[in-house]
Design a binder for these strands. Structure first.
Length: 194
DNA sequence: CCCTGATTCGC
DNA sequence: GCGAATCAGG
């Protein structure tokens, strides 16, 4: 991938919006966050100008490299993030939530599952959820990552709404507690022993 | 351990 | 110019 005009523009825009380099990289696709940062520097907009928020202010100085020769390094490989890129042309698009469009959100509160009575959610799981929601990090949609629980809590129609945000189970969109109520084994009896 | 940006330097 | 490797910090 090369830095086409459009890509650079998007980069600038997102960087200006305070998006992180990794998010930008994901959005652009085909580049790593390093590439993004590198480009940012080359473009001379390393500092997020104007914006009052300067999360990281590090006068870091380059150190001579000297390594203990121990870590082969294991970095996260760039994953082909397949995010449906639905942009409206023309206007400044609002940040696209990484959350799949989901109608009828089930607030993880009391009114539990409108689900078939076929399988009941273990009382323990429910208790766990209640417990967990006390500790929920109350993330906004922007703060969600692939590693944070995306269980919605509260009423989306009000500002009394947030996401669980606790560490999600690898491969799942929810934390363990919410996975417990979200993904019910479709067979309780079938093959229940091992 | 997860993440962030910053810098260096071989390409 | 580019970006992986690396560094430094939260």
């Amino acid at each position: 991938m090369s830095w086409t005009d459009e890509r650079v523009e998007l980069l600038k825009k997102m960087w200006g919006e305070g998006q992180s380099a990794s998010q930008i990289a994901k959005e652009l696709g085909g580049v790593t966050r390093n590439a993004v940062i590198g480009k940012v520097h080359r473009l001379g907009l390393s500092n997020r100008a104007g914006a009052g928020a300067t999360p990281t202010a590090k006068p870091a100085a380059a150190q001579p490299k000297a390594k203990p020769a121990t870590k082969p390094k294991v970095e996260t490989k760039p994953k082909p993030a397949s995010q449906p890129t639905v942009q409206d042309s023309g206007t400044e698009a609002a940040p696209k939530p990484a959350v799949p469009a989901r109608r009828q959100i089930i607030p993880a509160g009391q009114p539990l599952p409108p689900q078939p009575s076929t399988n009941e959610i273990p009382a323990e799981a429910l208790a766990k959820v209640n417990e967990v929601e006390k500790k929920a990090k109350r993330l906004t949609v922007m703060e969600l990552t692939e590693k944070t629980c995306k269980w919605p809590i509260g009423d989306p129609a009000t500002d009394d709404f947030w996401f669980c945000g606790l560490p999600s189970v690898p491969g799942k969109p929810y934390c363990e507690a919410h996975v417990g109520v979200a993904f019910q084994p479709m067979s309780s009896r079938r093959d229940r022993r091992r």
